[in-house]
């Protein structure tokens, strides 16, 4: 293993792309899935709401690291008729699935709180104007919900950036795992360098989230 600086930087950058990919895929799938879970947990039918709430409780109540291990190793160890693809690709897919499930549950609770915080008068005003339930949701309450949940959702998104490193537990070669290999050979600075990657990425996200929040400042809800 070469210890030249440009090579190390290149390798760190490559592995951070993996963190970024995991982050992006998790976000794309867990946000809509979280909305579905939120509606499930708010369902009038206990046959739906009780299992969904129990599931959310289990996912939020156990470590993401444990979920990663179980989702990756579970199918093989429990002889399920299902396998992750072989090699590093399979580990990455397993990690992505675990992250999506975990974050969908966290997002669902944020969404549920946001949806339930909208005053009933908004629904009633839409109803007496002859709107359907779907029209009331999409045309009246959705934007108000988005405005209200932006700050906690932003928090969760920033946490997700850093959580992607947990994927190393199933040997997804993300940036901290990569830096760790250099630490084993006596180099400490790559470990500090990983921090810079995270700081810059989170910094950009913070600006972006702030921009969206400012865009929604034109009304009060």
């Amino acid at each position: 293993m070469t210890l030249q600086l440009p090579v190390i930087i290149e390798r760190l950058s490559d592995s951070f792309l993996l963190n970024g990919k995991l982050f992006a895929l998790t976000l794309i799938f867990s946000l809509p899935l979280g909305l579905v879970v939120a509606f499930g947990s708010m369902s009038r039918f206990r046959l739906i709401s009780v299992p969904v709430r129990a599931f959310v409780w289990i996912i939020r109540g156990t470590p993401l690291m444990l979920q990663l291990i179980i989702i990756f190793l579970g199918p093989g160890l429990m002889n399920l008729p299902f396998y992750w693809p072989a090699g590093s690709n399979g580990r990455f897919v397993a990690a992505t699935v675990a992250f999506i499930i975990n974050y969908a549950c966290y997002f669902s609770e944020i969404f549920r709180g946001g949806i339930q915080s909208i005053p009933s008068g908004q629904y009633e005003a839409g109803a007496v104007l002859g709107m359907t339930k779907a029209q009331i949701f999409f045309k009246v309450t959705l934007l108000q919900v988005i405005k209200r949940i932006m700050p906690p959702t932003g928090n969760e998104i920033i946490t997700l950036v850093k959580d992607t490193s947990l994927a190393r537990i199933i040997s997804v070669k993300e940036i901290i795992m990569m830096a760790g290999e250099y630490t084993n050979r006596g180099l400490i600075w790559p470990l500090f360098a990983t921090g810079i990657y995270f700081l810059v990425f989170v910094g950009i996200l913070t600006l972006l989230l702030g921009y969206i929040e400012r865009k929604l400042e034109y009304f009060k809800a």
């Binding site: 908004q122 009633e124 034109y218 009304f219």
Partner: peptide, 20 residues
């Protein structure tokens, strides 16, 4: 019921305008 509601209009005590 959605159609029948349209026979009536309702002005609320708290206005309930759509803020956005």
């Amino acid at each position: 019921i959605r159609k029948k509601r349209l026979h009536f209009g309702l002005v609320f005590q708290n206005f309930n305008l759509f803020p956005q």
